[in-house]
C-alpha cells in the first residue's frame, strides 16, 4: 500500500487553501480539514493565518484545533492504522488484539514508530459493527480484523 504524500508546510499554500474555503458559512472546520489534507497536520504557524482570515483571535483558533480528536499538531507516520476501541469491537476481542499489536511494535496509543513508518491511533466506531473488529489503514477499511491480518498489514507497510 502506498503511503500518503503531503506537502511541506509553507504559508503561501496555506493562505491559498484558506482563501478557497472562506466563502462558506462557518468556514473554520472546512479550512482545518483542508490544511490537514494538504500538510498532513496543522502546524502552529497556521493558527495566525486562520485567525486573520476568520477575524478571530489566535486563541480561538487554537481552542478549536485542540478540541477535535482528528486534528494533528505534528505529522503522523507514513501510514496510520486506526483501531476501533468501541463496544461492538470490544465484544469481539479488539482490546486484546490491539494490546498485542502495540506491544509488538513497542508503541502506545497515538504513537509513531521510531522509523516513521506507522502511527497507531484509537478510533471510536467506524460503523462496521456487524463485521467487528474494525480498523482503518490509511483510507482502507478493514473488517473482521484478526491478529494475524493486522500483523501482516503492519509488517508490509513501507
Amino acid at each position: 500500500m502506498m503511503a500518503k504524500q503531503h506537502s511541506v508546510w509553507n504559508p503561501a499554500d496555506a493562505r491559498a487553501i484558506i482563501a478557497a474555503e472562506l466563502h462558506r458559512e462557518g468556514a473554520m472546520l472546512p479550512i482545518l480539514h483542508a490544511l490537514q489534507a494538504a500538510f498532513g497536520y496543522i502546524p502552529r504557524d497556521a493558527e495566525p493565518l486562520v485567525a486573520e482570515a476568520l477575524n478571530l483571535s489566535r486563541a480561538e483558533v487554537h481552542g478549536v484545533i485542540s478540541f477535535y480528536h482528528d486534528f494533528r499538531r505534528e505529522p503522523a507516520g507514513r501510514h496510520v492504522l486506526k483501531l476501533c476501541r468501541a463496544e461492538a469491537c470490544q465484544s469481539m476481542g479488539s482490546e486484546v488484539t490491539a494490546r498485542r499489536l502495540l506491544d509488538l511494535l513497542g508503541l502506545d496509543w497515538g504513537e509513531t514508530s521510531p522509523d516513521g513508518r506507522i502511527t497507531i491511533e484509537p478510533v471510536y466506531c467506524l460503523g462496521l459493527c456487524a463485521t467487528a473488529p474494525s480498523a482503518l489503514f490509511d483510507d482502507e477499511p478493514i473488517g473482521r480484523a484478526d491478529q494475524q491480518m493486522l500483523e501482516t498489514l503492519v509488517a508490509e507497510a513501507a
Binding site: 462558506r24 462557518g26 468556514a27 473554520m28 472546520l29 472546512p30 482545518l32 480539514h33 476568520l54 481552542g63 478549536v64 478540541f67 477535535y68 480528536h69 482528528d70 486534528f71 478510533v123 471510536y124
Partner: peptide, 27 residues
C-alpha cells in the same frame, strides 16, 4: 452542503453539533 466532523462524539448532541457547524469548539 456536506460538512465533515472531526472526531468528536459529543458533536452528535444537537447543540454541540450546531456550535461545530458554526466553526467553534463542539461545546
Amino acid at each position: 452542503d456536506v460538512r465533515v466532523g472531526a472526531g468528536a462524539y459529543v458533536c452528535g448532541e444537537e447543540t454541540s453539533l450546531l456550535e461545530s457547524l458554526e466553526g467553534k469548539r463542539g461545546q
